[in-house]
Simulated assay, not measured.
Amino acid sequence: MPSYTRTPYLVVTREAAKRKDVYGSVDDHVVRQAQLLRGADDSDTVFVAMHPIGAPGYLPAFSQLARFGAHVIACGTRYTTGDAGLQMENALLDLAACVRDAKERLGYRKVVLVGWSGGGSLLAGYQAEAEKKTITRTAAGEESALADAEFLSADAVVLMAAHRSRHRLLTDFLDPSILDEDRPDERDPELDIYDAGNPNRPPYDDAFVRRYRAAQAARNQRITDRAVARLAGMQAAGRADDEWCFVVHGTMADLRWVDPTIDPNDRRPGWSYLGDPRIANNASSGLARFCTTRGWLSQWSLAHAQVDAVDAATRITVPALVIVNSADDACPPQHMSDYFEALATPDRTFHEIVGANHYFSGGGEQRAHLDEAATTVLGWAAQRGLHAGS
Rank of each mutant, 00 (worst) to 15 (best):
I323R: 00
A40G: 07
S43E: 08
Q299R: 15
R213A: 10
A17Y: 13
D21V: 08
W116N: 15
R109A: 04
E15C: 02
G118M: 12
T292S: 08
V11L: 01
A55D: 11
D192F: 01
I223W: 05
F208L: 14
P60L: 12
D259G: 09
S43G: 12
P189V: 11
L321R: 04
N90M: 10
P199A: 10
T13E: 10
S121K: 02
G76F: 01
A84H: 05
S43A: 12
A102I: 05
N90W: 02
D311M: 10
E372T: 14
F47N: 01
V248M: 15
A84L: 02
T5H: 10
M336P: 06
R384Q: 03
N325A: 11
K18A: 15
A61T: 12
Y79F: 09
H351T: 07
A253R: 03
G286L: 04
H387Y: 14
I262Y: 04
A147Y: 15
M1N: 08
P2M: 05
V11T: 04
G363F: 02
T317M: 03
R183V: 13
Q221D: 13
P2D: 06
R278N: 05
R109H: 06
N200C: 15
I262R: 07
T136C: 12
A227F: 02
F151T: 01
T314D: 10
V12P: 01
T45I: 11
E143P: 09
Y126L: 00
Y126G: 00
R222K: 15
P189D: 04
A229Y: 11
V158C: 03
A388G: 07
A236W: 05
A214Y: 08
E352N: 06
L152W: 02
D27M: 14
S298L: 06
L10F: 09
M336F: 09
L159V: 13
E131T: 01
